[in-house]
């Protein structure tokens, strides 16, 4: 009797243990574009006749005040059980990886490591949640006043998910690092409580992702093709309806060769209890399209937790 009770308890607890681990999003603190611009840390690049301004993060990490703020935020978040990706270390690691890859040769044929243009593009400092930090120092006579801003962005849906900004009380004597430390300590709790609301929503309503479907050129496939009397767009739309949490998604763009779904709420776990992310979710659609009546081969080009991309027609 005791044994049966023990087995039943274990059977009941096992799925709970399995479901206890959703994928933790990666978070990184970076300086805001405004801060980079005001500190002369923007690179200009010519792009089709237009001038683009890109933040120079490599130079930014050499700013002592910025690194002090980032280190403090990283420390406070780690205390909350959410260690962050460190921007300066990530950038160093990317450079080292690139150098090593260029130097790695096969011992037999002397071949270099194969990588696509996309691999190079993805080799940038990235995270699922970006925390942008910035500040401005105003002088009012002998007094210094610091305006501080902190905001978190979901890197895939581009939504602002937390924010806490404001102007700190003026000071006659405090140095800039002291004013910054005060601002970080003062604003962090409010910011984290908003982040908590975002995570609570994630657990209640599923992870929000965006999905893009494209077609390889020259494959003859179009989203207007008909199967069993229905257009491919509608069949995919029906699949989305069946596979999203509470059928929550929005088909924001539908053309012959492109479908964009936004605010797609996917479950946190698949039917086997594994943590679900955009890649796994869209892989299920890939399998659905691979089978009859579609028999469409497609390539899952998803990178990251929240932005799924599937290109139909080829691998």
């Amino acid at each position: 009797m005791k044994k049966i009770f023990f087995i039943l308890t274990m059977v009941a607890l096992f799925p709970m243990a399995m479901l206890g681990q959703a994928k933790k999003p990666t978070i990184m603190v970076i300086p805001s574009d405004v801060w980079c611009s005001e500190n002369g840390l923007m690179i200009t690049a010519e792009n089709l006749g237009n001038t683009d301004y890109i933040p120079d993060y490599e130079q930014a990490v050499l700013n002592a005040d910025l690194m002090g703020v980032i280190t403090k935020i990283n420390g406070l978040m780690a205390e909350r059980g959410m260690p962050l990706k460190d921007m300066s270390q990530t950038m160093k690691s990317i450079k080292e990886d690139q150098a090593l890859r260029d130097q790695t040769l096969s011992s037999t044929s002397g071949a270099t490591v194969a990588y696509t243009t996309k691999d190079v593009l993805l080799d940038r400092a990235k995270a699922d949640i970006i925390i942008e930090v910035g500040w401005q120092l105003h002088k009012k006579g002998p007094q210094k006043e610091l305006t501080y801003s902190l905001r978190a962005l979901d890197a895939y849906t581009n939504k602002q998910i937390a924010e806490n900004s404001g102007t700190m009380p003026p000071s006659y004597s405090a140095t800039v690092p002291v004013l910054l430390e005060e601002a970080v300590l003062e604003k962090m709790d409010g910011f984290v409580s908003q982040l908590q609301v975002f995570f609570d929503d994630l657990f209640a309503n599923g992870r929000e992702i965006s999905v893009r479907l494209l077609v390889f050129d020259g494959t003859g496939i179009s989203f207007e093709d008909e199967f069993d009397g229905e257009e491919l767009t509608d069949m995919i739309d029906n699949w989305m309806y069946e596979n999203t949490v509470s059928h929550r998604y929005n088909l924001s763009m539908a053309t012959e060769y492109r479908l964009d779904f936004e605010q797609v709420r996917i479950p946190l776990y698949d039917e086997r209890g594994r943590a679900m992310d955009a890649r796994r979710f869209i892989n299920n659609l890939r399998k659905y399209l691979r089978d009859a009546p579609f028999n469409i081969t497609s390539k899952n080009t998803t990178s990251g937790l929240g932005k799924a991309e599937l290109i139909l027609g080829e691998k």
Binding site: A22, R80, G81, M82, L195, F199, D200
Partner: peptide, 8 residues
Amino acid sequence: IKGLNSGF
């Protein structure tokens, strides 16, 4: 109260 990392 819930921690920031509860559930992950």
